[in-house]
Simulated scan of single mutants.
Amino acid sequence: MRVRIKSWTGVATWTWVANDDSCGICRMPFNGCCSECRTPGDDCPLVWGQCGHAFHMHCILKWLNTQQVQQQCPMCRQEWKFKE
């Protein structure tokens, strides 16, 4: 007996690979999005610091803009530098 496939639909999922499951600033899951975004994905990417902590891009930018003197990681208080 032969089976003929008339059509098929591909399904894909994605996930961010980070040390934690949620953003340390907004507490939303990394597979979701921050409070400023409506949909997860490319519009709400994760960014890592040299210290190894990851945050939603919008969350860490907002956090750094509130820092007056020295820009520090909100988790470990090391000087914040974006990991390249």
Rank of each mutant, 00 (worst) to 15 (best):
M1I: 08
M1D: 09
M1V: 08
M1T: 07
R2A: 12
R2V: 09
V3P: 00
V3D: 07
V3C: 11
R4I: 05
R4S: 08
I5H: 00
S7D: 13
S7L: 06
W8A: 14
W8E: 14
W8C: 12
W8P: 01
G10P: 00
G10V: 03
V11I: 10
V11M: 07
A12Q: 04
T13A: 10
T13R: 10
T15Q: 13
T15V: 07
W16T: 12
W16P: 11
W16F: 15
V17Q: 15
N19Q: 12
N19L: 11
D20F: 08
D21L: 14
D21Y: 08
D21V: 10
D21C: 09
D21R: 12
S22D: 14
S22T: 02
S22A: 15
S22I: 02
C23A: 07
C23E: 04
G24V: 00
I25M: 09
I25V: 14
C26H: 06
R27A: 06
R27T: 08
M28H: 11
M28V: 06
M28D: 11
M28N: 14
P29N: 10
P29A: 10
P29S: 11
P29E: 11
F30Q: 04
N31V: 06
G32N: 12
C33A: 12
C33R: 05
S35R: 12
S35L: 14
S35K: 13
S35N: 10
S35T: 14
E36V: 03
C37F: 05
R38G: 13
R38A: 06
R38H: 08
R38F: 11
R38T: 13
T39E: 15
P40A: 03
P40R: 02
G41W: 03
D42I: 14
D43T: 15
D43K: 15
D43R: 14
P45L: 02
P45W: 00
L46I: 11
L46C: 03
L46N: 04
W48Q: 13
G49R: 00
Q50S: 09
Q50Y: 03
C51D: 01
C51T: 00
G52N: 07
G52E: 05
G52T: 05
H53T: 02
H53F: 04
H53A: 03
A54L: 03
A54Y: 01
A54W: 01
F55R: 01
F55P: 00
F55D: 00
H56D: 06
H58S: 08
H58L: 10
H58D: 07
H58Q: 10
I60C: 00
I60F: 00
I60D: 02
L61H: 11
L61A: 08
L61T: 05
L61P: 00
K62P: 00
K62F: 01
L64H: 04
N65C: 07
T66A: 08
T66G: 08
Q67F: 01
Q67S: 04
Q67P: 00
Q68D: 10
Q70F: 09
Q71C: 01
Q71M: 01
Q72Y: 08
C73V: 06
C73S: 07
P74L: 00
M75T: 15
M75V: 15
C76S: 06
Q78E: 15
Q78P: 03
Q78M: 12
E79A: 10
E79C: 07
W80K: 02
K81G: 05
F82S: 09
F82R: 12
K83A: 13
K83V: 03
K83S: 13
K83I: 02
E84S: 08
